[in-house]
Design a protein around this nucleic acid. Sequence first.
RNA 1: AGGCGCGUAGCUCAGUUGGUUAGAGCGCUACCUUGACAUGGUAGAGGUCGUUGGUUCGACUCCAAUCGCGCCUACCA
Length: 957
Amino acid sequence: MRSMEKTYDPHAIEQRWYQTWEERGYFTPSQTGDANYCIMIPPPNVTGTLHMGHGFNNTIMDTLIRYHRMKGEKTLWQAGMDHAGIATQMVVERQLEAENKKRHDLGREKFIERIWEWKAESGGNITRQLRRLGSSLDWQHERFTMDDGLSEAVKEVFVRLYEEGLIYRGKRLVNWDPQLHTAVSDLEVLSEEEYGHMWHMRYPLSNGKGHLVVATTRPETMLGDCAVAVNPTDERYKHMIGELLELPLTGRRIPIIADEEHVDPEFGTGCVKITPAHDFNDYAVWQRHRDEVTVSEQAHGGLINIFTIDAAVRANDEDEGKLIPEKYIGMDRYDARKQIVADLEEQGLLEKIDDHKLMVPRGDRSGAVIEPFLTDQWYVKIAPLAKPAIEAVESGRIRFVPDNWKNTYYEWMRNIQDWCISRQIWWGHRIPAWYDDQGNVYVGRTEKEVRSKHDLDDDYPLRQDEDVLDTWFSSALWPFSTLGWPEQTERLKDFYPTNVLVTGFDIIFFWVARMIMMGIKFMDEVPFKEVYVHGLVRDSHGNKMSKSKGNVLDPIDLIDGIELEKLVEKRTSGMMQPQLAKKIEKQTRKEFPNGIPSFGTDAQRFTFAALAATGRDIKFDMGRIEGYRNFCNKLWNATRYVMMNVEDQDCGVGEAKTGHSEPTLTLERSAADYWILSRLQKTKQAVAEAIESYRFDHAAQAIYEFTWNEYCDWYLELCKPVLNNDEASEAAKRGTRRTLVRVLENLLRLTHPIMPFITEEIWQRVAPIAGVTDAARDDVTIMNQPFPIQRKALINEAAETEMAWVMQFILGIRKIKGEMNISPGKPVPVLLANTDDSDKALAEKHRPFLDFLARTESIEVLSPHDQGPESATALVGEMKVLIPLAGLIDKEAEIKRLQKEIGRLQSDADRTENKLGNSKFVDKAPEAVVQKERDKLAEALKALQSLKAQLEKIQQL
RNA sequence: AGGCGCGUAGCUCAGUUGGUUAGAGCGCUACCUUGACAUGGUAGAGGUCGUUGGUUCGACUCCAAUCGCGCCUACCA
């Protein structure tokens, strides 16, 4: 066994242990558990890199997984990655761009090959990083949303939904990304407020009697107008309904129609131009009015598309004549806007231009302004799927943690629109639909199946749909597809439904809701019983971390540390807006003048756990991670101390080989031993309860406080007078050694789910000595040891009370020394007044503790009426602990100290007295509360009396 | 516009059925290089719990209003 360095060095141990665990197959579910536990990893993007959100998310999952594995459950954390269609395709397209190529230059097949190459190259990146976090994922069964099995699942689901009429194809207005040339779903559109203008345009009446003014934020779409709508109750316009307008610049005539639903008379001019092919609201208006002759007799029944897939003004088809004015053809939508505005102006048809704030829809990947666009797409009819998914949450079969997220879920699910699932990109699951030359559609798992099912000859021409499915379509199947579905595998039986989904709220709609719908549909059972929704990781100021803000932290950099220059380089390279680089560099140099030190994985994990209060974003504070690195060091050094005292010593644990739980030799336990064992039992319970209820912050806090404030600050110190005392019995030493090492061993198992590495490293040294493993075996791991269970028999209130007395005694003396500027190491004589039998006994019994921890030189019990010489005073219960002033204590300082203490007690006593003097309180409050107040008052008065007497005495000197 | 959440010490945060002097870490002050640990130890300063009302014997906690901040959803052309 290597000796322990004075300072804990995570590097030396983390990667070594992870490798060992993985090699030995510890991450694969064992077959022994009687209960099962499973979490599905939210599959990271295959070309992605780890960010703080992953760090947080995976720390939580790994903590849960390790906890349940230690509880002996058959535990699976399913590993895998997502092909992330659009995102991945964009990355590779950008690479091609650097070679001055487009994907069409390569062709579909070559391009996809290229993506697979890139996946092979970069795909391991994030899994390597996940390993660095200590994630105990079952890598042996890692899945990828584009692997063969999952592709089968996707086809199966598509075909079944189609056959049930829940997938259909239709021409409708969709969110079109003119940069990516694909449709996207509503969720992939982000609207943000931007500054723009409102153009007021005059549309002349055909009867020559003036004009109507329409206000619009998109004047260029007027080329596609099919009507102007007014509110039928609007006195200004109601008499004009049915009349015609001259649509400027086009030579077309359009009607004035009445639409109460859409037109708000109060807004703008009260007249709305209707462009059904380029606006969702207008499309709805058109649907209501399409049968009116004035609308239906327009070109394309009024549904006039004016753009190309690039959102430039399109050319006319042969049979359209001059539907689109020649002048604007080929212009980008924004160029067309300028030209049209200028032309209207010239014709005196532009009334005014106002500044206007509007919501601009942009594609979440490309950032391009989304154009509502008329295309053929595939849809999932969602309402029938949403209904049971809503019920699953209402009935409690799925529980959100924190609970209030269910409201968000309901709100969305109850207003859900059909899901556009086709994408005009190449990277993804190809839609399993084939067309013949007549335009008939055949859906099936394979072309072969389609031919045989529809009795089509082998040479009958069929071509497969060019589109692929929305990435989230395959993600929605993740909880069962990864387990082997549609095959009925053992894994599927064992682990579906899974126990909990751990995720950020940002993908509740994208992913969580869709998994619930698909899970219920195809497995007849919810995909998970609980959804733990955690917050976002933000920077220390509460800002979202983003490349453009230059405030991104990489979890790996916090683990390994990074030099300033490298950090600056990392934050400023490859920027979308290079002009920000200077500012980011400056801010980075200011915040991290010395770069980032290495904190290690465990410290980072503990930080995430400690900050994981439910339903709250976490501001990542460097102070915290530093503090928890120190905590690791504390634990490490506590172990060093324990090892020094127990290695090659008799710890009274010789029963390991027989499995006998009682020591074979006599041993004595001190009050301190009983005390720490009792505290340990309570801590075990607190930690287990905290993890079960997803309060990782409470779990971390309980561990931290026990380790530092109880085990290290008190217990290790209390051991010293026993272990270093030649007069102490061997049985007493044996008892203390046993307690020392066994409490540590328990503590390590308790901490392992949050801090896997340091606990394993230390445990390997400690466990054989604690007698829980055989030192000769090197194939044991803390990972598979039982999670500590509270042993009620070891809860010892008497010992806790006794040790509270000891601690109060010691603290009292330290306080006097501290405030009197007496060196803490200076031995002082102590006198005890107002003692009872218990005090005397305790003072005698614990003399070694008191001498060692309070540095008392002598302790003398005064006779009942002897108040002793002039002294500084501390109270332990009613007993007075006196340190004689002679030569040590400054009289004035002691007077001040006493006055302060008296003041504090007095105000407390006054408050309590008032309370008790209030008859309403005494009458109405529960007896127990009143009694508590009475006791409190009595105690305070006694203490006051005691201190006042003391003060008087000193003042008389 | 609707929904959700947050305002507690200089900073980051706990405070789960209303009931001790409202806690922790970091930071700060003073002292201590004592043989596990200076990534340490001891002692200490620091908060009228956003504001205002109400319920109650009693409110950080419950209710109402209000101010400030954040997020989500839907939007007025």
